[in-house]
Structures are given as C-alpha cells and as structure tokens.
Design a binder for these strands. Structure first.
Length: 141
DNA sequence: GCCAACGTTGGC
DNA sequence: GCCAACGTTGGC
C-alpha cells in the first residue's frame, strides 16, 4: 500500500480544520500541478498519508486517509485537474519538524527535502516507518 | 519580507 | 519543440 504526504498552509487549511470534518472528510482541491495530479490519480481508497503544515509550523502533525478516489475538481475552470477526499485518522503523538527530517539520515531522500514545493508527494514504506517512529505512532501499517 | 527554485505559459 | 518570461511556493 502506497503512502503519501499532503502539504497545507495552516492559516488556509489546518489539521484542526481537517479533524473538525471527522469522517465526512474534505475534498483536497486546488492542486494545479501535473506531478501532484499524477500522485492524486494513483491513490486508492484507504491509503494513508501524512498531513504537513507548511510555512507555519513546518511539521508533520497528523495522519489522513483517502476516503474518495480521484474525481474532477469543480474549482478548476479548465477541467484538467481533479482531487481526492481526505479524512483525518489520528494526530502524531509528537509532531515531526522539517528540521528533524533534514537531520535524519534515513530521510535524506525524502521528496519533502529535495522538492519542497511539490504539494502532494509519495512517501516510501521505509520513510513512512521512520516518520511513525519519530512521531511516536506505532500501530499504523 | 526576501529570494531561490521550479513549474507553467506562450511566442517564435 | 525550444526557451525566456512569468508567477508561485515555501524556507529562512
């Protein structure tokens, strides 16, 4: 099962906003980048990802799950882009900061480190495990 | 607030 | 199909 990472500016859409939606979930609209779209299209319902706060916080704060697979994004007038729905699963027991990630040798190849501008990123199984460890979360597969 | 990096657009 | 210009992102 693939894993993902979603970036959001907390003053626009924060982890707390996501949690408030509970099982209803929230459309992850607004992606206008072809590589990010490719990742959205590859997602399967039930796959897990990290929720990352960019600009403010600069840390991974929670885990989300794909609750609806790729479908058209009504906010895109060109009709080229789509989105998935995400629902909050659980917060990390302790947030993992970008600084920590950069200092961890096992995470040196993370997309977050090497292509920080990509808003939807794949996370490898190995990276996923390390981040769960740093976030003090043990029971996610 | 600055600026480097990068993706997209559009003219040729 | 190239590439310069432009806009945006996001760390600092």
């Amino acid at each position: 099962m693939a894993h993902w990472l979603y970036k959001s500016e907390p003053n626009v859409w924060s982890w707390d906003d996501q949690v408030a939606k509970a099982d209803a979930g929230e459309p992850w609209n607004g992606v206008r980048n072809f590589l990010a779209r490719k990742h959205l299209q590859a997602m399967k319902k039930g796959e897990l990802g990290f929720f990352y706060h960019s600009n403010e916080g600069k840390e991974i704060v929670g885990i989300v799950e794909v609750s609806r697979e790729y479908y058209p994004d009504p906010t895109d007038g060109t009709g080229r882009f789509g989105m998935v729905d995400l629902k909050a699963v659980k917060p990390l027991k302790r947030p993992v900061t970008l600084q920590e990630i950069k200092q961890e040798p096992r995470l040196k190849d993370m997309v977050l480190v090497n292509n920080s501008r990509l808003s939807v990123q794949p996370v490898t199984d190995a990276e996923w495990a390390v981040l769960l460890e740093l976030g003090a979360v043990s029971d996610q597969g």
